[in-house]
Amino acid sequence: MIAYLARRVLYAIPILLGVNLFTFALFFVANSPDDMARLQLGIKRVTPEAIAIWKHAHGYDKPLFYNGADQGLQRFSDTIFFEKSASMFAFDFGRADDGRDIAREIRMRAGPSLEIALPSFVIGMMTNITFALLMAFFRATLLDMWGVVLCVAAMSISGLFYIIGGQFLVAKLWHWVPISGFESGLSSLKFVILPVAIGVVSGIGGGARWYRTLFLEEIGRDYVRTARSKGISELAVLFRHVARNGLIPILTGAVVIIPSLFIGSLILESFFGIPGLGSYTLDAINSQDFAVVRSMVFIGSLLNILGLMLTDISYTVADPRIRLQ
């Protein structure tokens, strides 16, 4: 397994390089360094000299990929792409266009993102599994039918509706929690309850319906019939046998998501004023801050690769018949 993982780590390097190259190319197709400078310096009274100074100060006064004026390897190394990318592989993300240290910002913002994403993920999983098991238990009854109808309806509603509706109902009309905002420590609890609840509720439709399918598939297997023939109650069959076996695909599907929880949610954070990584990325895209965008894309791809590796490992844990070679 170690050899397998080592091989996966080595594969990750060209993937990260490719992602970085792709992000770089996409970004600079839409924005030139001059555009970036103009946006940072403001619309009024921007002189060509000011743009030149800004580009020089931020390292954007070089060719993008190939520097014909240099000799040898420097033709490639004395370029914006090389200088901005090489440091990133050493986890030196540099500074945002507003001068703030990106690594420090990421450290500061990962906490608030996790405070929303982690409980939403864990509680969401538990809720979905519970709902799915209940629907499986009441299969072929009116309760099951209405459960599926509700799930389909819930899946069809936009995520933004849950956010605006949730804020309106729970925070504005019922006055249970603040509409938006954030505090650190224990005080954050009152601010995260609603976004977490919305994260959970908005995921029930898709999650519970998918898990229900998995559980129903398990219910038809031979070992379930055997268990029933032994006289075990239906609840015990479901929660002791079906749930345990049905969880294998659920868990392996969930493991891949875990690392990306750090990245946060773009819209949820924006509406609830959570100073997390999701809103950081959104701000950077809006302000054309390439330094932040490429750092977040790099971290995102790294976490995605990590998630896939963890999924592979989780297969071996969940099913002893599988061996990584």
Binding site: F271, P275, S279
Partner: peptide, 8 residues
């Protein structure tokens, strides 16, 4: 306080 969205 930062409010990015007009509704909240």
């Amino acid at each position: 306080s930062r409010e990015k969205e007009s509704i909240p």
